[in-house]
């Protein structure tokens, strides 16, 4: 796959060293190209890339609030259409909080109305911008500042909300999951999302050094472990047709993923086993 050289997100941004979100956005923008308008929900990405009077964005960019990236992108898309600028790609970036929780209504509306836009959720599995509070996308067993582990708690006690499937239920033409650790898979999906007529949704798994508790050099490694253990699946749903896009040659035990992160360090064997069983069940169904 030809990967465009041009960087459309400038350095100098205020992301933590080893930030997975900026890797994801860089790679996405390479495929989307300069003729693109970006919408950001409030979150890490918005704060780190646009500290007035600077911006890291080399393409037009707009931020309005936390919970409305879907609606703002809808307005942008229709305004461009009204001006005959149909060739411009509209992409919205929102974190898992802005997508799975506070922004779900707005996203649902945008998907259901059939706007020609791409929505990329960069999922780091908690509210990282405000200091690691749980979100609907926080996985079972993770310790966050609002689901701390303790005598009476093993951390988050609900599994991750399945947003890609909720998006698929909207009947949109393209839904995919991706990981920053599989750049070609991700970028190919961005390319498909760009080409599709109508709404496209990509759920990008993206490790967070600060929130997950691992060394900044391990961001890609952690993303890889998530996929290689079956904790995160790479698939796409094209016009309703589900397809796994990557299968690990040999699925690793979930433990290697859990033990590499501080947020799971407290887990007792019983909980880890539960997580393994949960992963096994899903993977068996999907033959991974």
């Amino acid at each position: 796959m030809e990967i465009p050289e041009k960087e459309l997100l400038a350095p100098g941004h205020r992301a933590c060293a080893g930030c997975g979100a900026t890797i994801g956005v860089r790679l996405a923008l390479k495929m989307l190209g300069e003729n693109t308008v970006a919408v950001s929900a409030t979150g890490c990405l918005e704060v780190i890339t646009t500290p007035y009077p600077e911006t890291s964005w080399k393409i037009p960019w707009i931020h309005v609030a936390f919970e409305n990236a879907g609606a703002v992108a809808s307005g942008v898309e229709r305004a461009l259409k009204a001006q005959g600028k149909d060739d411009v790609t509209v992409v919205a970036f929102a974190g898992d909080g802005g997508t799975a929780d506070i922004g779900l209504q707005s996203l649902s509306g945008a998907m259901e109305r059939g706007h020609n836009l791409i929505y990329i959720c960069y999922d780091n599995e908690a509210y990282m911008n405000t200091g690691v509070q749980r979100s609907g996308a926080t996985p079972y067993g993770a310790s966050t500042t609002t689901t701390p582990h303790g005598e009476e708690s093993f951390g988050e006690n609900k599994p991750k909300k399945n947003i890609p499937m909720i998006m698929a239920a909207h009947g949109v033409p393209y839904v995919a999951t991706a990981s920053i650790s599989y750049p070609e898979d991700f970028m190919m999906k961005v390319q498909k999302a760009k080409e599709v007529e109508g709404p496209a949704y990509i759920h990008l798994h993206q490790p967070c050094t600060t929130g997950w508790g691992y060394d900044s050099s391990k961001t890609i490694e952690l993303g890889r472990l998530a996929v290689e253990t079956g904790s995160w699946l790479l698939y796409e749903i094209v016009e309703g047709e589900f397809k796994i896009t990557y299968r690990p040659l040999e699925r690793k035990p979930v433990n290697v993923y859990l033990e590499a992160q501080k947020r799971f360090k407290h887990l007792a064997d019983a909980e880890k086993e539960k997580i393994q069983n949960y992963v096994d069940e899903i993977c068996a169904e999907l033959k991974i």
Binding site: V37, V39, I62, V64, A65, E67, N68, G70, A71, V72, A73, S74, G75, V76, R78, A79, L80, A82, Q83, Q105, S106, G109
Partner: peptide, 15 residues
Amino acid sequence: HSAISAAVGASGAGV
């Protein structure tokens, strides 16, 4: 909420 959000997006896009 989405009405005014979309309006801001559209106005931002220049119409």
